[in-house]
């Protein structure tokens, strides 16, 4: 089974700091691959290299077997990479619906149409409304993004990713700040979503990670120290020391 997404020996340094050290990982069809690690381990930097917003010093990124390392971030998004940001990056002056329509528009490739009315485009609206419904933001449909709560912005990030109908999702801490109920609802959504496209999930919420993940990779100081099933990871002494030790009393 060829992986949907694969990184091969990605290396990236910021001065003396090694953010990625020979990072090779894969995301297979239908799986949720969780990436965990302490603060500053290099998780977001890895996502950025996969999405093309930061270039790696060396190494390659492959999507469906194709080398996409030379493609721009926008071209990778069109090729099927959908990302949610750790710090929400939405269009703050636009409404929730407009942000979702924007995703559908990007996926449709019609962003140079100048004569049509975008908010009258039935196909885009259907796509956007469906995504908003799935994350539970239908009631906020016409709210300006700048008026949303933190948790609502996190959910809109996910909704916009849904409208892209990608080949793989890359989610950077989607549960952060959602609260217990919110996390539970999003966990249910992600569990369902893996059937549409696999997910590379960066998450600090260990309950969610152990419920959702098919495989877990542990990143420490830019290096993947181990990859395995949730059971393996729970039992791994190095992981306990490096990371989980901080979580369990």
């Amino acid at each position: 089974m060829t992986p949907v997404l694969e990184t091969r020996a990605l290396c990236k340094t910021f001065g003396a700091l090694e953010a990625s050290r020979d990072v090779s990982l894969s995301v297979r069809p239908g799986e949720i691959h969780a990436l965990i690690g302490p603060n500053g381990a290099g998780k977001s930097t890895l996502i950025s290299q996969i999405c093309g917003t930061q270039p790696p010093d060396s190494g390659t990124v492959h999507l469906m077997g194709q080398d996409v390392t030379h493609l721009s971030a926008a071209a990778r998004a069109r090729a099927g990479l959908a990302r949610t940001f750790q710090i929400s990056a939405l269009a703050p002056e636009l409404s929730v619906l407009q942000n979702a329509v924007l995703g559908a528009l990007g996926a449709s490739g019609g962003s140079f149409r100048m004569a049509a009315r975008v908010m009258g485009d039935a196909a885009l609206l259907v796509e956007a409304d469906e995504a908003l419904d799935r994350v539970g933001l239908t009631a906020q449909r016409d709210t300006r993004v700048s008026d949303l709560s933190h948790a609502q912005r996190r959910l809109l990030e996910v909704a916009v990713a849904l409208t892209l109908r990608p080949k793989v999702f890359l989610m950077d801490e989607p549960m952060a700040g959602l609260g217990a109920d919110g996390s539970r609802a999003l966990t249910a959504l992600l569990a369902d979503l893996r059937n549409e496209a696999p997910i590379l999930l960066v998450e600090h919420d260990m309950d969610a990670v152990f419920v959702l993940a098919d495989r877990i990779s542990v990143l420490v100081y830019g290096r993947i120290i181990t990859t395995g099933s949730p059971r393996d990871i729970r039992a791994d002494a190095a992981v306990r020391e490096a990371y989980l030790g901080e979580e369990t009393p």
Binding site: C51, A74, A89, N99, G106, S111, R113
Partner: peptide
């Protein structure tokens, strides 16, 4: 009010968002 206008507005407000949905 056009698709182009929405894309342009998004690029003004957040380049990262515009790129993430595949806009050039």
């Amino acid at each position: 009010a056009s698709p182009f206008g929405l894309a342009l507005a998004a690029a003004r407000q957040s380049v990262a968002r515009a790129q993430a949905v595949g806009l050039n």
